[in-house]
Every structure is written in structure tokens, then in C-alpha cells.
Write a protein that binds this DNA or RNA. Sequence first.
RNA 1: GUGCCCAUAGCUCAGCUGGUUAGAGCGUCGGAUUGUGAUUCCGAAGGUCGCGGGUUCGAGUCCCGUUGGGCACCCCA
Length: 448
Amino acid sequence: MSSPIIKPQTLRGFRDFLPESMIPRLQIIEIAREVYSRYGFSPIDTPALEYSEILLGKGGEESDKQLFRFVDQGERDVAMRFDLTVPFARFAAQHIGILGTPFKRYHIAPVWRGERPARGRFREFIQCDFDTIGTESLAADIETLLVVHDLLEKLEVGEFTIRINHRQVLNGLLEQLGLLQHSSAVLRALDKLPKIGEAAVTEEMNATAGISAEQATRVIAFANIEGTRSEVLAQAQEMVSGSESGRVACEALTEIISTCDRIGIAESRLQIDLSIARGLDYYTGLIFETFLADLPDMGSISSGGRYDNLAGLYTKQKLSGVGGSLGLDRLLAALQELGRCKEVQTTSQVLIARFVEDRLADYQRLSRQLHAQGIASEVYPEGKNLGKQLKYADRKKIPLAVIAGEDEFQQGTWQIKNLQRGEQLVVAEAEVVGVIQSELNKLSTSTT
RNA sequence: GUGCCCAUAGCUCAGCUGGUUAGAGCGUCGGAUUGUGAUUCCGAAGGUCGCGGGUUCGAGUCCCGUUGGGCACCCCA
């Protein structure tokens, strides 16, 4: 009697990653790390588990319900982090003394939400956040946009537009309409405008904030202002002119735009969009979302903004900041839909066949020479028939195979087989590494 | 958390109003071909029909529950 087999399964909303999906994930993470660190952001990490009191009540009732929360073996009330922002607030409050300000960090790590999974939404997913805290300078806002810009450019997602707005511009409008006390509910409804349409937004504003249809119409009309960036700004400025903070915010947007212009950021990539509201309460200044020209329905793949007093719950020191987040899974889905995801199951570029079983040392020596040149190669572990070994390479889409049997060893040569073209070369021992290198160069230039 | 749809071989699916031993394509493995993959030909393995219960002489098929997946809300990356 054999013991019953345990059904292999993952938890709802949790995923395994096979090499073919892990390789592109790591490539994106690598690019994000590179851009973040190039701008001077330092990596940090925080624990997956926090005391529940740290995480509770930070994003409203909804996020509390979605918290994975339990009592640990030491009777502590603990929960898994829901996002990277709240743990960062705790982190900043705890360590800002030795870190000093301004402090720039990035944090690429998984977060957990006990919500209902759907397409592109999971219970465990990676966030790629970066923030600058401890400065209110507009320079940090501009730098945040530049990071997002460079990141998307490097990721080769095609044309994209960063749409920016400012919470104080919106609040300036609401102030003039006498709706400031309903700001949070009105903005949350406004945030849905492109998704649910004007009528539904009007209805929601009425239901949640009790505002009249006429007021809602004015808010929506404001959000719908279109034109060139300076035209939009000019109209916005006029409409919020009675609000001091609204006026200042318009100036901030103007300066952001003009500075980015002088840096050389294309106008098509940085637009003013007065309908961008962001659902989250804690934003107080610049807000932005990013859309791909080829996949406008995908939603924002990178968003963020400026907030005041991030760590106010944990420290008396005021820490304001600005930052953004890259939606890794959404971006990956985008790249897949755009067909920009190479389907590979291995990073190996060369398979060295173990043709003559007791020549393992010769095969490994060649492999290590390739490694020294930065070429990923591997020796097939078993001395099985050649067909099987080539099939392994073919299946994993390894582009080159190296074959040498007794004939080749006697002549001091190696055979290099290009599995994509079916071509085969015989080269002298001394040239083998160089030829492999140039064959691989040919492949990478011809496929892109 | 609410509503709706779905679950059959490793994958994609067929399987009639309930009726013998549940099928196909692709993939896997073996062989044709012990010095050459992808192409061709031949063959084989692989299923308590997601799981548990019920109705029935009889359930992959009908009912209930449960787990997992998808869609729309809610919310968000």
C-alpha cells in the first residue's frame, strides 16, 4: 500500500512561476533596479509580517478587510503587508534619524491582499515602489516623473503618456464650488470617469457626497478640459483663481512642464489631464498615471504622486514625499499582448553535447571558457544519444549546440551547430570561443 | 464581500434529453535513425471525469456543498 498522494495545488490567487515567466519578470525587475539606482535611489527591504496595528486603518475599511491577518505562535497579532507604502512609513519613522533627509529609496517586493482574484489581479504580487521623502522641493516631483519616463523608455513598451494633475488644483475647484468637505468622495467618483462615464459619476457623486447634478456637471466639465498643455493650464488657472492653493498648484504644474520641456522630454509623453484623481486619500500634491499608446484600455501601469506627512501615525517628525510605483504584473501582461516578450525557458545560449561520455572534462573546460566571456552555456549531463541531447536544446530554444566526438578531438576541432538555421560549422580549437561569440552576436542582431 | 459562468489525459477541447469497456489533436516516451534537433512514418503510456455528498436500476451528464479558475461589481497594482 502506497500512501495517498497529496494533491499539488497553490492557494487561490497565489502563483508558481515557471522559467518562461520568471525570466521576463526578472528582466523587468533588473531594468527597474537599474533606473532607480541610477537616479540615486537606494534599495531597502522590510519584513513581510508586521504587527497588525502598524497596518490597520491605513487605507480605509476596505484594505483592512483584505489584510491577511493571524495570531502567531507567540500570541502576537500580526498581518502580511498590504502595500509597500505603509511599511515604508513605519520604516522611515523608525530610521530617519540615521538615514537623514532627503532620503530616496526603492523597494521591489511582494505584497499580499486577500481580495478576490481576477484577470491580472492576484493575492500575492510584486510592487516596484520608489519614493523621495523629507523634501518638498518641486525638483523631487520632476525627478519622479523623469524616473517613470526613463523606466518606460528602457522597458520598450512603445509610446506612452504620463498624465499629470495636482490634488490642490482639484481641491481649488471643489473649494470654489463649496464641496471641499466632500473632496475624498468626489475625487474617488471622478477617478472612475473614463471607466463608467459621466452619468454614472454624477450619480455616484450624488449618492456618496450628496452633491447636486449641476455641481457634478461642473466638476466633470473641469476634468474634461482639453487642448494643448498651456491651454489646459490657462483654463484651469482661471477656474480655480479664487483659491490660493489652487493657484499655487497650477504654478507648480506649469513649472514641472516647462522644466521637463527644457530637459528634452517629448510633449506627447507628458500631458496635463485634469481628470486624473487617484483613489487614494493620502495624495496631496502632484498625481500621475501612465498609459500605453498601444494599449489604452490596460489602465495605468505606473502611478504615484506627492503626499504630506507620510509617517505621521508613527512619529511627530513631518515627512512629506513624492514617489511612484510600477505595476509589474500589469506591465508584463502588456508586454505579452504586444508580443514583446521573448519566449524562453532558459538563459542558456550554448548546449555542449556530452557526446563521448569520458570527455566530460573537455566539455566542461570549454563551457567554463564561455562563462569567462559572459556566455551562458551548459554541458548535457548524460552521455546519451546525440539526438536526445539536441532535442533538449531545441525544446529549450537554446540557439547553439557544440558537438565534438573522437573525430573532432583527433583533428583538434569543434562543431558548432546553429539550431535556428540548421547550419553547421567546423572550427579549430583556438577559434571556437570567438566563433560562438560572433554567431550569438549575429543571432541577437537578426532577431531584433 | 455580492452576483453570474466554468472545471473531462501534461495542454486545448469533444462527449446528444442520464444508458455498455470515456474520445481527438497537440505534447511526452519508445522505435524507424547507437554521429545530429526542429520536419516524416510506426507504436506505447497516460483519466477513481477537481473533491465530497445526494437523487437514480444506472451519473462525466441532474441536485447540494466545497476547492480552484474566469467575468461584472467593490477596490486597486
